[in-house]
């Protein structure tokens, strides 16, 4: 690489970091948080003995898992306006990613909840706990142990998938790299920087994941 490429990289390290911190990370965090809440309710609906509720949840999961994320993103941003619903790029991305996480994480949470023995529900019931309290204090804390590793994978995928938001004009990390590289066609250098940034985020998340998992293992025999 010649000096001008290095200069180009140098000039863009900061703007790309800004895009990461102001767009990529918030987009990931907000979508993941909303997606998890959605997933919890979808999982509970899916487990529910109320047939229409579980059928609805099943259909939702099926649609989300059976269609490309890019298509989901395009529907929210490019198709909804045809129905008169115009949403800005960033909130569009949040909606699409949250719905997507909601579908994938629901199956993870459902499996984790079902892995908790029936006796735990019954013990909670005999000490007088209601459904919501039992979930919150007995079931979910234990289910977390099973759910954290796969949910971490969902989160790490999401970090990388936020790059798809570049296609709906969100000026996140990849989009900034694209725009910076376009005039001189220096794609290799700037996409390389973007790759390194994504990689660093994922490394950091993996290390957080390890710490959370270790914490959740503290009450289990080794």
């Amino acid at each position: 690489m010649d000096a001008s490429t290095w200069a180009l990289i140098g000039r863009n390290l900061w703007p790309m970091l800004v895009a990461t911190v102001t767009q990529t990370l918030p987009l990931t965090a907000i979508s993941f948080a909303l997606g998890l809440v959605l997933a919890l309710f979808v999982a509970l609906a899916r487990i529910s003995k109320v047939v229409p509720l579980s059928a609805l949840a099943r259909a939702y999961i099926s649609v989300i898992r059976g269609t490309p994320l890019l298509v989901q993103l395009f529907i929210v941003f490019y198709a909804l306006p045809q129905l008169g619903l115009v949403i800005d790029p960033f909130p569009s991305a949040v909606i699409a990613f949250s719905l997507n996480v909601g579908g994938y994480a629901a199956e993870v949470i459902r499996a984790a909840i079902l892995s908790i023995p029936k006796g735990q529900w019954e013990a909670a019931q005999t000490i007088g706990m209601g459904y919501a309290t039992t979930l919150q204090r007995v079931i979910l804390p234990q289910a977390a142990r099973t759910a954290v590793p796969p949910l971490s994978n969902t989160l790490i995928s999401l970090v990388k998938d936020t790059s798809l938001a570049s296609t709906i004009l969100v000026t996140e990390l990849l989009r900034v790299a694209q725009l910076a590289a376009a005039p001189t066609f220096d794609f290799f250098a700037l996409y390389g920087v973007a790759a390194v940034y994504y990689w660093i985020i994922c490394l950091a998340l993996s290390s957080v994941q390890n710490r959370v998992e270790a914490r959740l293992e503290r009450y289990v025999a080794r």
């Binding site: 735990q120 013990a123 234990q142």
Partner: peptide
């Protein structure tokens, strides 16, 4: 219960006070 069904994520003391504190 036959198989105690203690809450594995809570200490012995926490198991015992769960009902009195949270429910009662």
């Amino acid at each position: 219960f036959q198989s105690h069904n203690l809450f594995p994520h809570r200490t012995v003391l926490q198991n015992v006070i769960e009902g009195p504190v949270i429910v009662q």
